[in-house]
Design a binder for these strands. Structure first.
Length: 864
RNA sequence: GGGGAAGUGGCGAAAUCGGCAGACGCAUCGGACUUAAAAUCCGAAGGCCGCAAGGCCGUGCGGGUUCGACCCCCGCCUUCCCCA
């Protein structure tokens, strides 16, 4: 008896692949490496191994890349498809502080769990290349690469505001602060300046922007990155401050509106604020600064919020006016909608032509002056609205009458001639805050000498190992936990033998993911981060797949590091990821009662097609949300695989819809995929018989001529192969699976007419999606080796051609009939047939025009 | 607030270039097989009207372009994602 029992063979094939090393990616220098084959590097964004394990949403992208990797191998590529762990970071540390377990221990437990879960999904990773960013064998090279940035002057220290929670006595990361309160405990937080390591990503802003054009990435991601980098052209203008030697420098994108600047606004953190504030204004100002410190940048710049600010009591001089001209005397205000890190931390306010300045001026009764006349037909200042568009300069001395674009360049020239300012390009992108006062991260390979200077730990003395500590809570004075590892901190500079103290900050969670694709190319190298040969062969990543959630930060940081490596001659391409693809989010149904309260899905049952709560039958509303532990709607792949088998699970993941779309998981739909694999099984195997495969597929079965049902099957197979091939171009594997289902529907009734070759080609086509059943049937067919090593089957053009065409016939764009014509029919014949087919609809009407789309459609345009 | 996506049957979805809307699957209903059930196989099915033939309406809403619009343009509405 031969029923389909996946539990009997799925783990056996997984063990076989591993034992045979079928997914090992052999690289340069390894025995058996074949350099004549083309390479393909397909990479998943590696996961942070959280304690809650994988859910079916994570698996979506992994199955997607696995399908691609398996097909590429069948096409003869050397495929690099690795997996590892982005294991440093805050959550592990947080969890450790709560439970008292060391993050090393919990991280190892979590990665073991993830590895075992991933292996059950039958993913064809080369596990010999597994990496863990929190292992010293990895992070010593993170430190080494950081040193390359450092020696190029791209790392520096600066006082920047960071979130501080007085109640918790700790520095918090941005993501730990919500609406000015700590995520844990809901305590108030403030931003206070602290010395931090910064990376000078702004030095690469122009290249990060320009090189986007060379990448095969989704346009939406490119737009988001461009937006993030935020290039803007404008001018820097110096305003002299009354009674101060230092001028205030402002940046503006609209130098043409300089004549309309009626006040200045400084960011609360601006260095000049405290110096210039008058005694009378000081109390109000102090109160304002304290309030601003507790707001996030998001709140501060939220345009919908009421504008707040306070006058400093000081005045500046607008340099476009003569000394003594009352129009040039402008008050200096402080407002939190101006950010210290953007531009110069100070703006000139032109309330007539900037919406935020307009609202601010209205709120505080400041002067509004028109300097740009709106074009005919548009509402301008004369109509009482702020005009922010382009128009004609007025009340602006030397640039009066000029159009905005011309007025801008003329103003810049005017300023430069008089040394009052200059044209400048700025970016919204800011330098990257690269240090944390936390334990679970990479230590900086830096030493502080007694004279206050900072030196690198020489490369040959790397790694700087993270000391083992039992108490790694942040200290109450905001200093880093590593500062308490006294024996570790106190050291000597190996170069000068002078006493030194180690830097006690650690790198942020992003650090390890800034180069991991390079380590995968050569993961066990103890002499270098990666060998030149390996990088030369495998780089760049051909296909990078991950969630759109990382559209900006991770991808921008990774590109930045890679460009630095390129400049340092470490890599041969200036971009790391040639093609990027974002898998969609897998959402899940959740249920809420009449009051909107969420009900866990295991408390829900279905009665008469309606969801109700189990104990009392109260009707519930089905909603779609993300999968989250807190919503109790998480589905674990282990459970699904246990019940339906791995192949059915993989097929369902791909059958749900196009890879890039977000779609709800519905376990109720899986039986359809399970039935599909069972039907595949029965196509090849008679479950009632002892034979390993049906007679018609046996090795010694008589050769069948390609005619009749066999020809029909050949054509059906050709259509399936074509559709599958196409699905790899669009990453909509749901249509490939649908095509294979259609194939089964078509050949089911004529099973006995199928040839062995047709059966084998179908299995090869199925193999990337459902590799276990493909292997099992491949073996039962008596084929030697693994289906993963057979050639990818292609459709033969001659079996895709049809003898007859069915052509829809429309009248005035409405479908009124269909005709079937021989492939060779002439246009005249087709038109004649079409007229006949829709004759009743043409009755008494005049055909004005006949539209014929070659082989596709006829449309009669009629009148009367 | 800014930025990015997406809205098609009861549900997941499909539809080369602007050319037959709803392939494939789930759930549902009917039939066959069965003592019965499960499994399997065959069939029905967007909505409305109709015994039927057939007709009308239908891709979030309102306009537009076109012989023809899920697809292109303009304006709305709703939902989801991201913000160092």
């Amino acid at each position: 008896m031969n029923p389909y029992r996946p539990q009997d063979f799925e783990s056996r094939w997984q063990a076989f692949w591993e034992a045979e090393g079928l997914h090992r990616a052999l690289g340069p220098g390894e025995p058996g490496f074949d350099p004549s084959r083309p390479k393909y590097y397909v990479l998943d964004m590696f996961p942070y191994p959280s304690g809650s394990g994988l859910h079916v949403g994570h698996a979506l992208g992994y199955v997607g890349t696995d399908v691609v990797a398996r097909k590429k191998r069948m096409e003869g590529f050397n495929v690099l498809h690795p997996m590892g762990w982005d294991a440093f970071g805050l959550p592990a540390e947080q969890y450790a502080i709560q439970t008292g377990k060391h993050p090393r221990a919990t991280t190892d437990e979590n990665t073991a769990n993830f590895r075992q879960q991933l292996k059950k999904i039958g993913l064809s990773y080369d596990w010999s290349r597994e990496i863990d960013t929190s292992h010293v064998s990895y992070y010593r090279w993170t430190q080494w690469l950081f040193a390359r940035l450092y020696e190029r002057g791209l790392a520096y220290r600066a006082e920047v505001p960071v979130w501080w929670c007085e109640e918790l006595k700790t520095v918090l990361a941005n993501e730990e602060v919500i609406n000015g309160r700590s995520e844990r405990g809901n305590h108030p937080c403030v931003r206070r300046p602290l010395k931090q390591w910064m990376l000078k990503i702004t030095a690469y802003a122009e290249r990060l922007l320009d090189d986007l054009d060379t990448l095969d990435w989704p346009e939406s991601i490119k737009i988001q990155q461009r937006e993030w980098i935020g290039r803007s052209e404008g001018a820097e203008v110096r305003f002299a401050v009354e009674g101060e030697p230092e001028p205030v420098t402002v940046f503006t994108t609209r130098p043409d509106t300089l004549w309309g600047a009626t006040f200045l606004v400084l960011a609360p953190e601006h260095a000049l604020v405290k110096r210039i504030t008058s005694a009378a204004q000081r109390p109000a100002l102090e109160a304002y600064l304290a309030a601003a410190a507790s707001k996030s940048e998001l709140d501060r710049t939220d345009a919908s919020k009421q504008k707040t600010g306070v006058f400093t009591g000081a005045y500046a001089h607008n340099p476009v006016f003569e000394k003594g001209d009352p129009r040039g005397r402008v008050p200096i205000w402080v407002a939190d909608y101006v950010l210290a890190q953007y531009g110069t931390g100070a703006i000139m306010s032109v309330p007539g032509h900037d919406q935020r300045d307009f609202e601010f001026a209205q709120a505080f009764a400041l002067e509004i002056r028109e300097v740009v006349r709106a074009p005919q037909g548009e509402k301008g200042l004369a109509d009482g609205v702020c005009f922010t568009g382009e128009g004609t300069a007025v009340n602006s001395g030397p640039i009066d009458g000029l159009a905005t674009a011309e007025a801008k360049t003329r103003t810049c020239a005017w300023l430069e001639e008089r040394s009052l300012g200059k044209a400048r390009v700025t970016y919204k992108l800011r330098d990257w805050l690269f240090s944390r006062q936390r334990y679970w991260g990479e230590p900086f390979p830096l030493l502080h000498l007694e004279d206050g200077s900072v030196v690198r730990v020489p490369d040959e003395f790397l790694p700087v190992e993270l000391p083992v500590m039992d108490d790694f809570k942040p200290a109450s004075d905001g200093s880093a936990p590593l500062a308490r590892a006294k024996d570790w901190v106190v050291t000597i500079d190996p170069r000068t033998r002078k006493p030194a103290r180690r830097d006690t900050d650690t790198m942020p969670g992003w650090a390890g993911s800034c180069w991991y694709w390079l380590r995968f190319m050569d993961p066990h190298d103890s002499k270098a981060a990666f060998s030149k040969e390996a990088e030369q062969y495998w780089g760049p990543v051909d296909l990078y797949v991950g969630g759109a959630a990382h559209a900006v930060m991770h991808l921008l940081y990774a590109r930045f590091w890679h460009k630095v490596f390129f400049d340092a001659g470490l890599v041969h391409t200036s971009e790391p990821f040639q093609k990027l693809y974002n898998q969609g989010m897998v959402t899940a149904f959740a249920y809420e009662d009449a009051t909107g309260r969420l009900i866990a899905s295991d408390e829900v049952e279905w009665q008469a097609e309606k969801p109700v709560r189990k104990p009392d039958g109260e009707p519930l509303k089905q909603i779609v949300t993300k999968m989250a532990k807190s919503l109790k709607n998480v589905v674990n792949p282990d459970d699904i695989i246990g019940e339906y088998g791995c192949d059915a699970f993989r097929l369902y993941e791909m059958f749900m819809g196009p890879l890039d779309e977000s779609k709800p998981w519905n376990t109720r739909d899986i039986p359809g995929c399970r039935r599909f694999v069972e039907r595949v099984w029965r196509l090849f195997v008679d479950p009632e018989a002892e034979a390993s495969v049906r007679e018609s597929f046996a090795r010694d079965a008589a050769e069948k001529p390609i005619e009749g049902d066999t020809l029909a099957a050949e054509r059906a197979l050709a259509r399936t192969l074509r559709k599958t091939e196409e699905s790899f171009r669009h990453f909509n594997f749901n249509t490939a699976i649908a095509a294979m289902m259609t194939f089964l529907n078509e050949v089911g009734p004529i099973q006995a007419s199928l040839t062995r070759s047709q059966g084998l080609r179908f299995l090869a086509c199925l193999a990337p999606f459902a590799p276990h059943i493909a292997e099992e049937l491949w073996q039962r067919m008596g084929e030697s080796g693994s289906v993963t090593r057979t050639a990818w089957p292609l459709a033969e053009a001659r079996y895709l051609e049809l003898d007859e065409l069915e052509i829809p016939v429309q009248v005035l764009g409405k479908l009124r009939g269909k005709i079937t014509v021989p492939k060779a029919a002439s246009r005249a014949e087709i038109e004649r047939g079409a007229r006949a087919a829709v004759a009743p609809h043409l009755e008494g009407k005049e055909v004005v025009k006949t539209i014929y789309v070659e082989g596709r459609l006829v449309n009669f345009v009629v009148r009367g």
